[in-house]
């Protein structure tokens, strides 16, 4: 596949994203005239269609947009850092840490005490898991040590989640937590969007400007170092960025897998395999894919409720297997 000029690719993805964002405002169980609803909402008219738009469709689309962009961007950053197309934020414990933090908040009822408790729990869990991976692996750890430490922390976090579910006093609480963990953007409000926004934006800002260093890492860590890259600082910066952004996203949406894996992989040939150029287009592609997936789950007949996290896993897992087989063939 021939590379496309980065600005042209970003422009095409942006146009597609704007179009799909507006389509997502139209799609739902009851069709509404979106333009009229927007006009009424802007006039402060609390009509039903205005409420459906502002309280149901818009938050859902915004959360899909920002969470998808986070997952795509963080996947590209992680793959660039580890120089591995199979890497994803889940690999260093960020996602499972966020799940544990959020589940702990849901279980303890802290979420009802203050509105930022859930994303704070997600970010804290994600940061702690990342920190533990880093402490276990050591300051100057190599890539394989980091991955092994990530596997260990993932197992520990998921064991803790199982323990919380096991100890839950009510089966309804267990059901709520399990349904949340499946990953969904349905029934989210603008408050949820505001909750996810601060950590997301800080994470994105931390990733901005790391493209050159990721490009240099193409030639390996020693060469990157001699090209002026401060590797320990780069690793910390990317880990903290992923912890904040993924922690915020997971706390609001639950686990949505494979977007961070699939999108960078699909777009990489189009940017000439340059990790730095992959970052912005992966953010756009991730947002586009999650919006499309969320539209797709709304198209199922009434009575069949498929969570968007389940859909991305159903599509993503075979893709992951294909990637492993392709990598194996390439290595042999």
């Amino acid at each position: 596949m021939r590379p496309i000029h980065p600005r042209l690719l970003a422009g095409l993805l942006t146009l597609a994203l704007i179009a799909v964002f507006f389509v997502s405002l139209f799609v739902g169980s009851s069709p509404i005239p979106v333009i009229r609803a927007a006009r009424e909402a802007a006039d402060g008219n609390a009509s039903v269609i205005a409420l459906i738009l502002t309280e149901v469709r818009l938050p859902r689309a915004l959360i899909a947009l920002f969470s998808g962009a986070t997952l795509g961007l963080c996947g590209a950053a992680m793959q660039g850092l580890l120089r591995n197309p199979l890497a994803a934020p889940g690999l260093i414990g960020s996602s499972s840490g966020a799940v544990l933090g959020s589940v702990a908040v849901l279980y303890s009822g802290l979420g009802t005490l203050f509105w930022l408790a859930l994303p704070a729990g997600g970010m804290l869990g994600s940061l702690l898991a990342t920190l533990m991976v880093y402490l276990m692996a050591g300051r100057d750890a190599g890539t394989s040590t980091l991955i092994l430490a990530g596997v260990a922390i993932n197992s520990l976090a998921l064991a803790m989640v199982s323990l919380i579910l096991n100890l839950a006093p009510s089966p309804y609480a267990v059901q709520d937590i399990v349904l949340w963990m499946l990953g969904s953007i349905a029934n989210r409000s603008l408050d949820d969007f505001w909750m996810l926004l601060p950590g997301t934006l800080i994470g994105w800002l931390l990733l901005v400007g790391s493209g050159r260093s990721l490009d240099a890492l193409t030639l390996g860590e020693e060469t990157a170092y001699t090209l002026g890259v401060n590797l320990p600082r780069l690793r910390w910066r990317i880990f903290i960025a992923i912890a904040l952004a993924v922690g915020s996203a997971v706390s609001v949406t639950g686990t949505i897998s494979f977007i961070g894996l699939v999108i960078p992989h699909l777009l990489r040939p189009l940017v000439g395999f340059q990790p730095g150029r992959l970052l912005p287009v992966s953010a756009l592609g991730g947002a586009l894919l999650l919006l499309l997936a969320d539209i797709a789950v709304r198209l199922f007949p009434p009575g069949i409720e498929i969570k968007v996290g389940v859909l991305t896993s159903l599509v993503g897992a075979p893709f992951f297997l294909y990637l492993i087989l392709k990598t194996r063939r390439w290595q042999t």
């Binding site: 120089r83 050159r212 490009d215 240099a216 890492l217 193409t218 030639l219 390996g220 060469t223 090209l227 002026g228 990489r268 000439g272 395999f273 340059q274 990790p275």
Partner: peptide
């Protein structure tokens, strides 16, 4: 020396200008 991604020759040479 190796490259972890199949980057073009021109891009590899251009990495030398990063400093």
């Amino acid at each position: 020396g190796t490259a972890h991604w199949p980057v073009s020759v021109e891009r590899i040479v251009a990495l030398g200008r990063l400093p």
